[in-house]
Amino acid sequence: MKTDKPRSNIIVNVVLILLVIIWTVPTFGILVTSFRIRDNVSKTGWWQSLSDESGYTMENYNQVLGGRTFTYTDSSGREARAKGDDMMGAFLNSLTVTIPAVVIPILIAAFAAYGFAWLDFPGRKTLFVIIVALLVVPLQIALIPVLRDYQVLKLNGTYLGIWLAHTGFGLPLAIYLLFNYISTIPRSIMESAFIDGASHFTTFVRLILPLSVPALASFAIFQFLWVWNDMLVALVFMSGGGAKMQVVTVRMLNMIGSRGQDWHLLTAGAFISMVLPLIVFLSLQRYFVSGLMAGSVKE
């Protein structure tokens, strides 16, 4: 209701603008730093970068993205060599982990939500209550038991292992959200499909899935941000895969350890790790917000 907006005044706007600046400056700072030349970064603050004589560079990104060894001239003028961080490899790993870890739980949860909403079978209510109750279980509880099994099964450090783990941890919320959506689809729509002789499977694939796209999309964004940004699950279940299997968050963690003061590289790395979630977030914000609302706001 835009017309009923309370009157705005100067103080409100000034305070808000000030807070927005405070909120934005940290991210802006690393963005600027990631394009500055190595020596400048260690000599002056990023806010003074406009007075850099040598301008900006893409070199930091080249170094961080590639896995090859590169040479540079250090502050005392000597040639030095360092290995690249292969952020590109980590980025692809993150994609390999994230896409199936988003799609698989959605598929499984949508089937389950349909089953709980529209099919009758013994134990239906009990099972559903148990699933909702599992929302309270923090994933920390699963780390040790599942890791021990993974070590025996040699699943530690495999994509399959982490997909299934993320699927398990994401399912309670996915089923709950999708159930709430799918169970509100009018029964008459489904009955007309059954009269036409469609099976439950056909009805689900042809009718319910397309109708559920808004709910699927908002859960997908949740799960995408969660899996892409996750560090704990990746640290634990990818621990057996070595550096080759590291995802971006774990690679960033290692860079913080090994490149503590190389801010020109750390900032570039951080920005690479943020790029995809930011794009997804900005382009699909509408779905994301409606998903948040689903869990939060009394209409």
Binding site: L16, V20, T27, N229, M252
Partner: peptide, 26 residues
């Protein structure tokens, strides 16, 4: 109560997309 509601909100909401590790570096 502000005229820049939309812009302000998206800028403040933005960090939600950033991982804890990324925020750690920042």
């Amino acid at each position: 109560r502000s005229k820049i509601e939309k812009l302000a909100k998206s800028l403040i909401f933005l960090p939600m997309a950033i991982s804890f590790v990324g925020a750690g570096v920042i």
